[in-house]
């Protein structure tokens, strides 16, 4: 009981503390100040020490995303077929979330394409697709790190002769601790189960 009250007080305090600062809405989730939350759990993806670069040019470990649920997909910006659909599925999901859940949920797109998806290419993709800045992170990484993250998300992929990537279509919900809370394979599926999973994960949001 006591700890709950303290946690509530702390939570309230951090909200107040954050308010006078520059509006967080200007920065994508990757670039918000990290919150110290102790050691990640044994199943947390935030145990990874790989470094990633966002479309705003900042280099970060994934653990800076800790504290809020992340809806994650892997994509590549020159994709002709499935990626626009998977990004659309994520946007549909975002629109279906109740406002209080949406305010505590981030979205993360990580590129397969280590060569063509440069920082500039990702920034152009964000602009072209009108991807909101406030809660969407776009990341690129090194080949080994992309392969490793895909392996953790259970995503298989290979590049064909034309440079297109064949890949599994999976939307993953990471909870605030970075553990896989839910995965939805396939495209154009009704987002009901995803909405439920995100709403559940958002209850434990730490920021």
């Amino acid at each position: 009981m006591k700890t709950t009250i303290i946690a509530l007080l702390l939570g309230a305090a951090s909200v107040f503390a954050a308010e006078p600062a520059k509006p967080a809405a200007e920065l994508p989730p990757c670039c918000r100040p990290a919150v110290p939350l102790g050691k990640p759990t044994d199943k947390s993806l935030y145990l990874l020490d790989s470094k990633w670069t966002s479309d705003v040019g900042k280099t970060i470990p994934l653990s800076v995303l800790r504290g809020r649920p992340q809806v994650v997909a892997m994509f590549f910006s020159s994709c002709e077929y499935a990626c626009p659909i998977i990004v659309n599925d994520m946007r549909t999901l975002e629109a279906k979330l109740p406002a209080n859940v949406r305010a505590k949920t981030d979205f993360l797109l990580v590129s397969f394409d280590t060569k063509r998806d440069t920082v500039a290419a990702l920034a152009a993709y964000r602009k072209k697709e009108k991807i909101p800045t406030a809660n969407w992170t776009l990341l690129r990484g090194g080949e080994d790190d992309v392969r490793e993250l895909a392996a953790l998300l259970g995503i298989n992929y290979s590049q064909d002769a034309r440079g297109q990537f064949a890949h599994s279509n999976v939307i993953t919900v990471l909870n605030a601790e970075g553990e896989i809370a839910f995965q939805q394979p396939g495209l154009n599926a009704a987002p009901t189960a995803l909405v439920d999973a995100v709403a559940k994960a958002a209850k434990d949001a730490k920021r």
Binding site: Y81, A82, N156, S158, A166, H167, N169, L187
Partner: peptide, 11 residues
């Protein structure tokens, strides 16, 4: 590019 349920994959 295969899974138990191949509908999950593209390509």
């Amino acid at each position: 590019i295969v899974t138990g349920d191949a509908r999950g994959d593209t390509g």
